[in-house]
Each structure stands twice: as C-alpha cells, then as structure tokens.
Amino acid sequence: MKGQQIYQQVAFLGLRLSTLIIISVLGLIIWFLGKRGVSALSWEFLTQAPRNGMTEGGIFPALIGTLCLTLGAIIFALPLGVFAAIYLTEYAKQGRLVRIIRLGINNLAGVPSVVFGLFGLAMFVEYLRFGSSILSGSLTLGILILPTIIRASEEALLAIPQTFREASLALGASRWHTIYKAVLPAAIPGILTGAILGIGRAAGETAPIIFTAACFYTPRLPHSIFDQVMALPFHLYVLATEGTHFEKTLPLQYGTALVLLGLVLGINLIAVVIRTRLRRKMRW
C-alpha cells in the first residue's frame, strides 16, 4: 500500500514536471524575445519601411506582406479544406478509397515545408507564370496548411451528434440541407480551431515563401496579388544571416521576432474569443 502511494507520487511528479517544462519553454521564448526586442518596438518601427540597408527604420512592408500572405492562404485553404472534410466525413462511402485519401492527407502534413516551397516555385511561379508574388506564396502556404484544416474540420464534423443528422433527415431535409443547416453550423467552432492553427503556421513559415513570394527588400507596398512582398519571417532570416551589419541589426531582429510572435498570438486570441462566443451559442 505504502509502495503504491510512492509510485503514484512519482508518477504525478513526472506529469507535473512535463507540463512545467512545456510551459517554461513557451515562457522562456516570450521572456527572451520580450526582453531583447521590446526596446526596438515603437510606433515608427511598426509603420515605417527599413532604411539605410535595413539597419534602421521599421518593418511595415514586411508586416503588410505577412498579413497579405496569411489572409490569402486562409481564403484559399479554408473553403477547400472544409469542403474536402465534408466530403470525407459526410458523403464519401467509408472504405478503401477514403482510407487512402486520409493517408495521403496525413502524409501531406508530414512533408517538409521547403518541399512545398519548391513545389510552389515549379507549379505557381514557373508553370502557371504567377511569378514570385502574393498569389504564388498564398497558394503555397495554403497547400501547406490544408492538412491541418482538413483534419480539424473532420474532427469537428465527426463530433456532431448523429442525432442532428437523423433529426434533419427525418424532417424530409435533403442531405445537403442537413449538412449545410444542421451539421456545419454546429461544427464551426471546431473548424475555426483548425483555421487558427493554420493561420499561425502560415504566418510563421519561411521556407515556402522564399521561392514563391518574399523579396529581400522593397519599401513599396503591394498593389496587386501579383506583386512581390516582404514578409516577417523572411525579413528576420535575412537580417540574421545575410545582413552586412549583423551586430547592428540585432535589436531589429528581436523586434521583428517579437512582432511576428505577437501577430500570431494575437490572431489566435481573436479566434479563441470568437470560438468561445460561438460555442456558448451552439452548445448542446
């Protein structure tokens, strides 16, 4: 009995410790970036273009570029992913074909992001002649986050009680009406979770946009989806590796990293608030 209790204590300690370590890592990153980057933050930093060979000034074009790319990726990937998930869970006959498709989607999630970048380069930039542009970058990022969105949407749809579908069909509603009016609205909070994860990933990825959208430096803001843009992760990469004044730009680097982190966390926060509101309305 005594031995069992000690055993339990040790197990709980292990669980607590694991959680603590995970939380500390996140806390450490935020603290580290905050301490070093906060001095670079200013209104000017957020609203002005880089100056003097990117050793001074701000990150405004990169901020706008990342917003455009992320927005584009979500516009492309969210409907596509949700429709694919609807097809897989609601329409497709569950069998070997669906299993193969699911396997494919899971594998897509495991493909290294640089491979998506190269694919985007070959497909969108070269073959479809979109050039290095917001469009190419958004599509590439969109494909990258598709598996996340599909999986989250599938899980959200599968979590909807079968009784909703039965109730709707028993009222003489068609299958599409059932999905569109009874199942999908109840699944939206879960689907939003997938979208949040996707947005976070799309905003932070570097490799897929190096070849497809990002440029080294431009003070010009994009005028169309065929323009190249600066982007926060790539800007950070450039400052940290290719700048001639590496030491001098350190505060800028930390500032950029902090803004990128803040952007992702901010988007997540907004989505979490929306999701919580919807859940409250949609509970069953």
Binding site: P161, T163, F164, E166, A167, S168, A170, L171
Partner: peptide, 16 residues
C-alpha cells in the same frame, strides 16, 4: 417519404 412519415426520437434532439 420522410415528409409524409415524421419521426420523434427517444432522446429529444432539438437543433442548437
């Protein structure tokens, strides 16, 4: 058919 034959389930299942 289901328009003509309505159904009430064991567990009440209103939509949210």
């Amino acid at each position: 058919l289901r328009k003509r034959v309505g159904m009430v389930f064991q567990k009440s299942n209103p939509f949210p």
